[in-house]
C-alpha cells in the first residue's frame, strides 16, 4: 500500500513498488481521490522503485495533466539511476521535475 503524507495542499506519496500494469490502477484511484480532495502539489517518492513500464509512464503524464488543470504540479524524487536516465532521455523532465534525491 502506498504511503501518504499530507502537508496542506502538498501531498507526498510513496508507492513503494514498481509502477507497472499490475499496480497502476490502484495508484490511479489513489491519486484521483487525493486531487479530488484538494491536493495540488504531489511529490512522488520513487524510493525502491526499479521499473516503470508504458502504463506507468502514462500514469505519470496523466497525473501531471490532472494537477496542471487545477493549478498544481507533479514532482518525482528519489528516482533510481535507470529511471532518471529514462525520464530525461524521453525529455519528460521538461514537464515535471525529476530528481535522484
Amino acid at each position: 500500500m502506498a504511503e501518504i503524507t499530507k502537508d496542506g495542499e502538498k501531498v507526498f506519496v510513496r508507492p513503494g513498488r514498481d509502477i507497472t500494469a499490475s499496480t497502476v490502477e490502484e495508484l490511479q484511484r489513489k491519486l484521483t481521490s487525493l486531487i479530488d480532495g484538494g491536493a495540488r502539489d504531489v511529490v512522488l517518492n520513487l524510493t525502491e522503485i526499479e521499473m516503470i513500464d508504458s502504463l506507468g509512464l502514462g500514469l505519470l503524464v496523466a497525473t501531471h495533466n490532472s494537477l496542471s488543470e487545477v493549478g498544481g504540479g507533479l514532482s518525482l524524487t528519489n528516482v533510481s539511476k535507470d529511471i532518471f536516465g529514462l525520464l530525461t532521455t524521453m525529455r519528460l523532465n521538461k514537464h515535471f521535475p525529476v530528481s535522484g534525491e
Binding site: L55, L57, G58, L59, V61, A62, N65, S66, M90, R91
Partner: peptide, 25 residues
C-alpha cells in the same frame, strides 16, 4: 543517435480520462 524526442502529453489526457489508450512518442 536520438537527436530529440517528445511525448505528446496532451493526447494522454488526465487521470479521469483513462490514460492507457494511446501515448504518442
Amino acid at each position: 543517435l536520438i537527436l530529440n524526442c517528445k511525448v505528446d502529453i496532451s493526447t494522454v489526457g488526465t487521470l479521469k480520462d483513462g490514460f492507457s489508450k494511446k501515448i504518442p512518442f
